[in-house]
Amino acid sequence: MKNWKLHGIVLILVIISELIGAFNFKCGPGTIVLLPMLYALIIGIFLTPKFLKVANEKDMSDAGSLITVTLMLLMARYGTLIGPSLPKIIKAGPALILQEFGNIGTVFLGIPLAVFLGLKRESIGAAHSIAREPNVALISDVYGMEGPEGQGVMGVYICGTVVGTLFFGVIASFFAAYSPLHPYSLAMASGVGSASMMTASVGSLSSMYPQMKDTLAAFGAASNMLSGLDGLYMSLWLSLPLSEWLYKKSYKLKYGTLPETKVKEDN
């Protein structure tokens, strides 16, 4: 918290990004929403030691430790939207809880695809979940971040932050325009455990249904918080064991032999 240089950089990024503002682009029936969060991320990348060297390695390490704290502020803001819509959220309670089982689809789709593209144990970290902050922490605790699983989860985490917001904004608009799904169900589906992706998706839906703006934000925020709560246990007890099993099956199918047994080194 004493790294005043880091706080100054963040403040400047926030001001610049907010001055740029959000941009909406029509893409067929859908809408691509570019949010200030995306601008801040892209500008921040160019400030790292790899490019302009405005931030050093210590700054980057300090920033990483503050991610969870800063996301708490965002989720507190969303919490203020849930209260007025609480009766509707309670009514949709079972749907909000059971939707977490849909995230297991990333395992069945991602693991075989990653293995056949040439990834090995990186596929477990990359495809066991949507790879947001709780999942990064889980992989770090179970496997360590220096191993292939840690590289896999961080790769998807970064790609999700950069590309995921755009993808979610577009896909929500297309489903709203072409599918019979209700906007409330799409808002619930937006809450996969990523504040940025949920914000982009709900933002697109809100631009199409401005009369439902507050309710859509409440459903998305409630779904996102539930995904953060039960999603971690779902990953620990179900997705990770399933990923290990499916990885072995996919590996044997491609290479004709079982992979080497993972041995966790004691520190």
Rank of each mutant, 00 (worst) to 15 (best):
P36H: 01
M37D: 07
M37E: 11
M37F: 08
M37A: 14
L38W: 10
L38S: 08
L38E: 09
Y39I: 08
Y39M: 01
Y39W: 13
Y39Q: 08
A40G: 09
A40R: 00
A40E: 00
A40C: 03
L41Q: 01
L41G: 03
I42G: 10
I43K: 04
I43W: 05
I43P: 01
I43F: 14
I43C: 05
I43D: 03
G44M: 01
G44A: 02
G44T: 07
I45V: 14
I45G: 04
I45L: 12
I45D: 03
F46Q: 11
F46R: 09
F46M: 13
L47M: 13
L47I: 07
L47H: 11
T48C: 15
P49W: 13
P49M: 10
P49C: 13
P49Y: 13
K50N: 09
F51Y: 15
L52K: 08
L52Q: 09
L52E: 02
K53V: 08
K53Y: 08
K53N: 15
K53R: 15
K53F: 04
V54E: 04
V54S: 01
V54K: 04
V54W: 06
V54M: 07
V54I: 15
V54L: 15
A55Y: 06
A55L: 14
N56G: 14
N56P: 02
E57F: 06
E57W: 07
K58P: 00
K58E: 05
K58S: 05
K58H: 04
K58N: 04
D59A: 08
D59T: 06
D59I: 02
D59H: 02
M60Q: 08
M60V: 11
M60N: 12
S61L: 04
S61I: 01
D62N: 00
D62T: 00
D62E: 02
D62K: 00
A63R: 03
A63W: 03
A63T: 03
G64F: 00
G64Q: 00
G64C: 05
G64W: 00
S65M: 06
S65Q: 07
S65R: 03
S65T: 02
L66S: 12
L66M: 11
L66P: 07
I67S: 02
T68G: 05
T68F: 02
T68W: 00
T68K: 06
V69R: 09
V69H: 03
T70E: 09
T70L: 15
L71N: 04
L71I: 08
L71A: 10
L71W: 01
L71Q: 11
M72D: 05
M72H: 02
M72A: 13
L73F: 15
L73Q: 08
L73K: 12
L73P: 04
L73H: 09
L73D: 10
L74S: 09
L74I: 13
L74M: 12
M75R: 05
M75F: 15
M75A: 11
M75G: 07
M75C: 11
M75W: 06
M75I: 15
A76Q: 13
A76P: 12
A76Y: 13
R77Q: 14
R77I: 14
R77P: 08
R77C: 12
R77Y: 14
R77K: 14
R77G: 13
Y78M: 14
Y78H: 15
Y78I: 12
G79P: 10
G79R: 05
G79A: 05
G79T: 02
G79K: 08
G79W: 07
T80V: 07
T80G: 10
T80S: 11
T80F: 08
